[in-house]
């Protein structure tokens, strides 16, 4: 009996020591995880000598795997269907630049076919990329205004922006303006046009009056139960 108790006690002590040293699952640790099936036993399996995006890579002078494309690189991707036919991303076309081909004059009208899907896409992208500063309503009351560190955010319902050609808005979104950064690198061109289409709908929602409703909608509005 004495032996049994001492064996159990020793066992409990060892168990306690293991749990004490290793901790319970889910414990916070800043140490890199120990790879149990590591490269030591199966070299080149878990961590293969291949390039992965945004990783350190000594081969290139700047030490990262993701390199910028050399100047003059032509983007290979399927074309986008616009009102004036399929457009590719390397073309000097209003879809890519917001300007009339071969000039610096901004185009007046969105080159994308206007559909419900485009507006929905525009709303989603607007809420992601524009709303943090310009606000979901586009009135310039975004979260950056609320925290008070970004005082000069454009109200997108300004007459200046309402009368601005679509191409000029596209140009501003793409390259930034003043303190606003460029969104061309993170929002693809068709999404930028979708955002502009949605912005026009937002502006219209603010400009509209009850006179814009058709007869049946007006009747509904004036209906008193």
């Amino acid at each position: 009996m004495r032996y049994a108790i001492s064996i159990l006690l020793i066992g409990a002590f060892i168990g306690g020591a293991v749990v004490g040293m290793l901790g319970l699952p889910g414990r916070i640790s800043s140490q890199p995880p120990v790879e149990i099936y590591s490269d030591r036993y199966f070299p080149g399996m878990d961590r293969q000598p291949k390039l992965r995006p945004q990783k350190p890579f000594e081969f290139f002078a700047n030490g990262v795997s993701s390199q910028l494309p050399p100047p003059g690189t032509v983007a290979r991707s399927p074309g986008v269907a616009t009102l004036s036919g399929v457009v590719h991303r390397f073309e000097d076309n209003p879809f890519n630049t917001g300007m009339v081909t071969g000039s610096t004059n901004f185009i007046d009208v969105n080159p994308m076919p206007m559909t419900q899907a485009l507006l929905e896409r525009g709303r989603q992208r607007f809420d992601i990329y524009c709303a943090p500063c310009h606000g979901r309503l586009g009135d310039g009351n975004g979260i950056t205004k609320a925290i008070g560190d970004m005082p000069a955010v454009a109200n997108l319902h300004d007459a200046r922006i309402i009368s601005m050609p679509d191409g000029e808005i596209f140009n501003t979104v793409t390259h930034g303006k003043g303190l606003m950064g460029a969104y061309g690198p993170i929002v693809p061109a068709e999404d930028r046009w979708a955002v502009i289409a949605y912005l026009r709908a937002l502006q219209l929602s603010d400009l509209g009056t009850t006179n814009d409703l058709d007869a049946s909608q007006q009747a509904l509005l004036n209906h008193t139960p």
Partner: peptide
């Protein structure tokens, strides 16, 4: 579940 969860570098 033990050696990865909770990694907070």
């Amino acid at each position: 579940k033990y050696y990865r969860v909770g990694y907070q570098p």
